[in-house]
Amino acid sequence: MEFLLSHIQTLLGYPLDSGKRVYVFYLLGSLAMVLLVMALRLLSRDRNGAAGIWKAFASPGIWFHPSARLDYQLLAINPLIRTFFLGFVGISLVPVALATSNFLERWAGSLSLDWPGLQITAAYTLVLFVADDFTRFLLHYLMHKLPWLWSIHRLHHSAEVMTPFTVYRIHPLESLLYSLRMVITQGLVLGLFFFAVGMNLSVWEIAGANAFTYLFNLAGANLRHSHVWISWGPWLERIFISPAQHQIHHSSDPRHFDRNMGAFLAVWDGLFHTLLVARGEQVSGYGLSRGKPSPHTSLARAYIEPCTHALRRIVRSRPLKSRIITCIDNEYHLDSRS
């Protein structure tokens, strides 16, 4: 009972935690952006456009849709499972950092850059942000390209409506992979700076979050998982991912599949030829594919189906022509997206 109460307190603390996407000031930043766009529409005498934006943002049909209700359930249950997995794996940031620093010292000798403290903090904050964003993109890219990883990640893409809570619509195995990615990335960067400038490190923070991450989240990050179409324009969208670009990423239109996989920076999509700017594009629906119901219609299916789907993909990838493959194909025919 005490453990359950502690978990509930943790969930209730999400709006006060700058490390969570649903931090109250990130949500208020998105609301302010919606109101600003509506005001601009009204100033241009486009009342219908302003009303459409508000409907896309606040429609009860979106917030109480069965897909959205599943998002809320996953938000509530996943942290419990994630705690178990991380405790089982037992990896932490400090050993990775120390191992990285020791390896660099053995390989390159001692190094102590005599930089001013301000330069060290600025460099550490920036490198940490860029490295974290790149590895987040790389893992996301692999989840779209490797069939067994896509089997796990497709739970996120089966959302038929989008709200800020859709960011928590992920399978525990995916959550584990992202946690391991974060620990390894931050450990490597921390170890590099231990080696280069010593252990007296600090990062620019706003309310306890990396300053760059905080500002990006404040600038409408929650509108990425929404029905409010906001584009930064073709030039800026080659540098930063806009809400409209991430909505393209979730589109059920095959033309939009595997596009705009960046979290904050769009430059990685440019380098991997997956970038698509929002100009001239429109999204008519979300989900895995048009006209097909989501395979994740309950909490149980959201947890079990990705695992069975991954096993099918692993079996299908083996160079074995047997009746078991035929049986699986007949039972569960899959197209390239599903």
Results as ranks from 00 to 15, higher is better:
5 L>C: 09
7 H>V: 06
9 Q>R: 10
15 P>F: 13
20 K>P: 00
23 Y>P: 00
27 L>H: 01
33 M>A: 11
34 V>Y: 04
44 S>Y: 01
65 H>L: 07
69 R>P: 14
74 L>H: 11
76 A>C: 03
76 A>R: 08
95 P>Y: 03
98 L>D: 12
103 F>N: 03
106 R>L: 13
118 L>Y: 03
126 L>I: 12
136 R>H: 11
140 H>I: 01
141 Y>P: 01
144 H>V: 01
146 L>A: 14
157 H>Y: 13
165 F>N: 09
171 H>R: 10
172 P>G: 05
174 E>M: 03
176 L>I: 08
176 L>Q: 10
186 Q>V: 09
203 V>K: 04
206 I>D: 01
219 A>K: 01
219 A>M: 12
221 A>D: 13
223 L>Q: 02
229 W>I: 11
235 W>G: 05
236 L>N: 03
238 R>W: 04
243 P>S: 06
248 I>S: 06
250 H>W: 02
270 G>R: 14
270 G>A: 07
273 H>W: 12
278 A>T: 08
289 S>A: 08
294 S>P: 15
299 L>S: 02
304 I>Q: 10
305 E>S: 10
324 I>W: 15
326 T>C: 07
327 C>R: 03
330 N>E: 14
330 N>M: 11
332 Y>P: 11
335 D>K: 09
335 D>P: 15
